[in-house]
Write a protein that binds this DNA or RNA. Structure first.
Lengths: 260, 260
DNA sequence: GATCAATGGACTGATGTTAGACCAATGAGA
DNA sequence: TCTCATTGGTCTAACATCAGTCCATTGATC
């Protein structure tokens, strides 16, 4: 079909003329979808993130609907639809009246190993995307922290998070591990960075939660966490980079291993 | 007014009970607004980003409305409203018929120095946020690249971008400088990273464009660019970090200097 | 036991957004 | 010179989302 071939050639030529870098990742990044979904879906996503990241731990309650809607920049109706979805999914419990509110129910049962693989396959290339992005964010954050130095308050916060994750009960481990990693991003002082780190952590969270918490892995992680903190407090960016990369490569290998 | 004081104390206690980490940056990051504005506003923002970042250079045309709407995940009507806004702002020119389309008009006249300061003051704390985030992203990207190594193709791309910015005419300098920096992010291979880098660059772009392009600054930047590339190609993460930090600190200081 | 402030629940009317179909104009190429 | 594929321009009906208002419920406190 020569006509077809000509057409396609014409298209390609036209594209490259009209749009230098048409296939450029930068162009794709700038012209990427403006919104990931409708307001309802994105709101559900955020609320689930708050639960899964432990920002609102089991038993705690979300802010009042009016406040929460304002925070999320969404109408109260949309927020209520999202909350109703979480309620029907058994993630939250809603109580009326003063001192009522939307409460997070207990943690969901641990997903089966098969579930983890399915989720990972659903992510596809997005898994590598997330792993790479996480590495860049955490390496960058830790480098900047080590190069810049910490205030006493920051030092205390970091050490307390480290101690918390080290002495965590198994059921609290993931939440406190998340808190530790997000604290590293948080200390850099950029809310954009904190948001990006929370976002990428959330994308990996389903997979991480599907990995059984083995005491051997915990011990490894504890040593690596300590190495990271030590390097940051010593103001040694090089050691910090190595420690972060070793730590993240470890869990990345663990994740990829679960795919077979 | 003791009643008032009691009330406030009650509120505080209630908040900390219901929402551990209420004032935590992580909580703010997770519960941040779901959308920055309505679809129309965000679309205008994206199109302006494409123009300002040089993704669609002057004289080139955007993809057809139907394609562009699909890419941006927005209805064609909303996209057209955004395009009409750009048209009225004199940024684009619309031609009908086959081989027609939406074309980017020439670059806008350079903003006055006072404009830069006003914009910077408008940004407020967001300026430090963007500068910190940029540093974390680029330091992290360059570290990962240096540690991981580049393929021949990637090496060529990076060198060609470096050569392009080094030999750029003054009016093309910002665009090619942007391309160079975004290429560093791009080579890491994470679309999330590329998107974040493009986003933060765009936030700083108005300010950068307001800085006069002095040949002295260009020469400094050229040396630093070469140092960055050399470190990445040498696989020397430590040198790469130092080179990136020196380069970014230079322009950050330049920017902050314009605020007085 | 009664009060009442804070909370979730429900409704209305207005505006934003979408999908899809169809019309109008253009100009490179037959 | 004429064709016609591609492009911007326009419209409609349906749905999503919003701001604002008022109602119903709860339980700590008086």
């Amino acid at each position: 079909m020569p006509a077809d071939a000509d057409e396609r050639a014409d298209e390609r030529a036209s594209e490259s003329r009209e749009f230098p870098g048409w296939n450029d990742p930068t162009a794709e990044a700038v012209l990427r979808p403006v919104r990931a979904g409708n307001a309802f879906e994105e709101t559900v996503e955020r609320l689930m993130a708050a639960i899964k990241l432990g920002v609102v731990p089991p038993g705690a309650r979300f802010p009042a609907e009016r406040d929460l809607a304002a925070r999320l920049g969404v109408s109260r109706i949309t927020l209520r639809e999202a909350l109703r979805a979480l309620q029907q999914a058994g993630q939250v419990e809603v109580r009326r009246g003063r001192f009522g509110g939307t409460f997070v129910t207990g943690p969901p049962p641990a997903p089966e190993p098969g579930e983890a693989r399915r989720r990972a396959e659903d992510m596809g290339p997005a898994l590598d995307d997330a792993l790479t992005f996480r590495q860049v964010l955490e390496v960058g954050a830790v480098q900047v922290l080590a190069a810049r130095g910490l205030t006493d308050t920051q030092r205390e916060l970091l050490l307390s998070r480290l101690a918390a994750v080290d002495t965590a009960a198994p059921e609290d481990y993931r939440r406190l591990d998340t808190a530790f990693h997000l604290t590293l991003a948080e200390l850099a002082g950029s809310s954009s960075l904190t948001a990006a780190a929370a976002d990428v952590r959330m994308r990996l969270n389903d997979l991480l939660n599907a990995i059984p918490v083995l005491s051997r892995n915990i011990e490894h992680s504890a040593v690596q966490h300590q190495a990271i903190v030590a390097a940051v407090l010593d103001g040694d960016p090089d050691a910090a980079r190595l420690a972060v990369i070793e730590h993240l490569d470890g869990t990345a290998a663990l994740l990829r291993g679960f795919l077979g």
